[in-house]
Amino acid sequence: MFKHILIPIDGSDLSRRAAEKAIELAKLCQARITVLHVIPPFQTIAYMGALLAATEFAYNEQAKTDGQQYLADIQALAEAAGVPFAGEADFGEHPNETILGVAKAKQCDLIVMGSHGRRGMTRLLLGSETQKVLLGSEVPVLVCQ
């Protein structure tokens, strides 16, 4: 049914559960997975430039380290299930655009991701990366809660 599944992760328990479900599905379909962690850029405040530059560097290094750990955790699950794995951590201003771009570039035929379950006014004001992916995707999106 599916040959290549994209799994965006953010390090949360919810994204890990979505990844576990995606790996189960990939095993059933004999599909491969690509796991993507999108790192939001450092948000700056314009004063004390030297201090902020050092802070941005530290943020970027820690974010890359965290991203690699998130990927390693999911890779271990995929290897245990015998599912072919590829992973990447990329910086992206808009995670939904990065997710959709990777899905298209890698010719994924399914995206599996978690939803943080925002409701009501919070959802209206903040939106949801999952909702944005749902609205912009050319392939099916499976949302896990």
Rank of each mutant, 00 (worst) to 15 (best):
D73F: 02
D73E: 15
A63M: 13
G114P: 00
A50G: 03
L77Y: 11
P40M: 07
Q107V: 11
Y59H: 05
I111L: 07
P41F: 08
P84R: 10
L36N: 02
A58P: 00
F91A: 05
V112E: 04
P41R: 03
T55W: 05
G92N: 03
K106S: 05
T122W: 01
I74K: 06
H37F: 12
V35H: 03
S115L: 02
R118Q: 02
K64T: 14
T55V: 03
L71H: 09
S115Q: 03
D66H: 12
A50M: 11
L71W: 11
G82R: 13
H37N: 13
D73G: 04
S115I: 04
A76K: 15
D109G: 06
P95R: 01
L110A: 07
G117F: 04
L36Q: 02
K104V: 08
G87V: 12
I39W: 09
T98N: 01
G101I: 12
M48V: 13
K104M: 12
E88H: 09
M121R: 06
Y70R: 05
G120P: 02
E88A: 12
I39E: 09
A103C: 08
A58C: 01
T44L: 08
K104T: 14
P84S: 09
G49K: 12
N96T: 00
I74R: 06
D109F: 14
G120I: 04
H116A: 01
Q75T: 07
G114W: 01
F85A: 08
E56V: 01
A46I: 11
E61L: 11
A81V: 06
A72G: 10
F85P: 11
M113I: 02
G82S: 13
I74G: 04
A63I: 10
Q75E: 15
P41N: 05
H94L: 12
G67Q: 04
N96L: 00
P41V: 03
L77M: 15
S115V: 07
T122Q: 15
Q107L: 11
V83S: 03
G49H: 14
V38Y: 07
